[in-house]
Structures are given as structure tokens and as C-alpha cells.
């Protein structure tokens, strides 16, 4: 990695524990790593190893019990809920494993949710939106409800939603987990293309070794710990 590149995300001694009845489960155990601007990092590991939890914490969707996470130089753990929400809207994008599209909204409405939430009137969405839906090949499905879309189309809508605000860091939680190989490859291509075009940092949780091999770095998790960092 180029030493001149700046750190975009820094995670230090992050611990996340859940209390289930009398047992304390440690989902993330002292995770420490750094991710550089424009990097593509894959997080791998067996089910229940804490990958998604770590991703949610890094994306500011959940809070750790201890440790610190710095994104773009700001400690997101010390931010209040409102500041963190605004930070998420402005700089971070999230692609959920199971799409998480709002069923009552059409594809277009789902994609435009982040623009409404961030209230950035100086931002030109229209052109960006058109390019995005053209790139993702969903222009003809914009007025359909999620239930009327295939799994691949739903995932593309979810990707468009994550990218509409031009986030600096994109978090993807098994974005191809529910797709067949052809669709998975297509979605991955799209993600990498938009990453290059928008100069984004991509952090992706995946079980797919073939996809992970395309990453700049792979973080391997086991029992909540980052066991290995490898290419």
C-alpha cells in the first residue's frame, strides 16, 4: 500500500458484546485495523464470526461497547445520534445483505430516500441519478415496487440507494449473498466500476473467496477477532 495514502477509516480496540440471558457474547473482540482512501477491503470469516456487526459499527449503524472508530478524521463513537446520522448521510453508504428496501416505496423512491434525508439542495441529483440507474441497468424498473423486482434487481436498487449521495466510504454486507453466480459477478463489476469512477473506499463482507480475491486486502475474522490481514 502506498504510504502516502491517507487513512480514511481507523478502528482501534473495538469491542462489541451482547448480553443473552446470563451469557455475555463477544461479537467483536478488540478489532484494530486501518483502511486507506480508495482501498477495497473484504472482510471474511465463518458465520457468526462478527463480520456484519463490525461492518455495522464501522458504518455508524451500531455502537461499540469500547474502542474508537475514526472516519475521515472524526471519531464517530463520540458523536451524538443526530450528528452521526448526518455524518452517515453525507459520507457513508450502506448496502445491506437482504436489500432492506422499503416495500411500500417504488424503486425510484427507495433510491431517493438518502437525498431526502440529507437535505442537500446544492447537490445535483438528477444527472447523477440518471447515470446511476443507467449503469445499474434498472432504468425500466424504477416505478416498480420491490416485490415486483427480482433478487438481482432489488440488490441493484439497494446499491443505487447506497451510492446516490456519492458517499466516500461504501459498506457492503454480503451484497451478492442472495444472488446466483452470474448476477453476483455483475453486481461486483458494478460496485468496482462505481468505486473507480467515484474514487470511493469499499468495505465488503463476503463469504465468496472469488469476490474477495479482487479486493486490495482481506481481513479474516474468527470468534470476533481479526485473525489475519492478507492479500
Amino acid at each position: 500500500m502506498d504510504p502516502n495514502k491517507r487513512v480514511i477509516l481507523s478502528c482501534k480496540d473495538v469491542i462489541k458484546q451482547y448480553r443473552q440471558y446470563d451469557v455475555t457474547v463477544t461479537a467483536v473482540d478488540r478489532a484494530t485495523f486501518e483502511i486507506y482512501d480508495g482501498e477495497f477491503v473484504a472482510i471474511m470469516g465463518p458465520s457468526g464470526s462478527g463480520k456484519s456487526t463490525l461492518l455495522h459499527i464501522c458504518a455508524g449503524l451500531d455502537r461499540p461497547n469500547s474502542g474508537s472508530i475514526t472516519v475521515r478524521g472524526s471519531d464517530i463513537c463520540s458523536m451524538g445520534p443526530d450528528d452521526l446520522a448526518e455524518f452517515r448521510g453525507n459520507y457513508l453508504g450502506m448496502i445491506f445483505q437482504n436489500h432492506n428496501l422499503i416495500p411500500q416505496f417504488t424503486a425510484m423512491e427507495n433510491i431517493l430516500i438518502p437525498t431526502l434525508m440529507c437535505n442537500r439542495p446544492d447537490f445535483s441529483y438528477e444527472e447523477h441519478f440518471r447515470k446511476l440507474v443507467a449503469t445499474l441497468n434498472i432504468a425500466d424498473r424504477l416505478h416498480h415496487l420491490p416485490s415486483e423486482l427480482s433478487g438481482g434487481q432489488q440488490q441493484r436498487v439497494a446499491i443505487a440507494r447506497a451510492l446516490i449521495n456519492r458517499p466516500q466510504v461504501v459498506f457492503a454486507d454480503e451484497p451478492t449473498g442472495n444472488l446466483d453466480r452470474a448476477n453476483a459477478d455483475e453486481v461486483m463489476e458494478l460496485l468496482l466500476r462505481t468505486k473507480e469512477v467515484m474514487n470511493q473506499t469499499l468495505i465488503m463482507v463476503t463469504h465468496d473467496m472469488k469476490l474477495a480475491e479482487r479486493a486490495d486486502r482481506i481481513l479474516v475474522m474468527e470468534n470476533g477477532r481479526i485473525e489475519a490481514k492478507r492479500k
Binding site: D82, E86, R88, G89, N100, M117, N119
Partner: peptide, 16 residues
């Protein structure tokens, strides 16, 4: 909750 969760994931805070 789900809808509000999505709103908040994409930038909605108390004010919004």
C-alpha cells in the same frame, strides 16, 4: 421501525 431504521441509516436524524 424498519422504515425509520432505513431513514436513519441513510442520514435522517432527530431534526429530519
Amino acid at each position: 421501525k424498519f422504515t425509520y431504521g432505513i431513514y436513519m441509516a441513510f442520514g435522517a436524524g432527530f431534526e429530519k
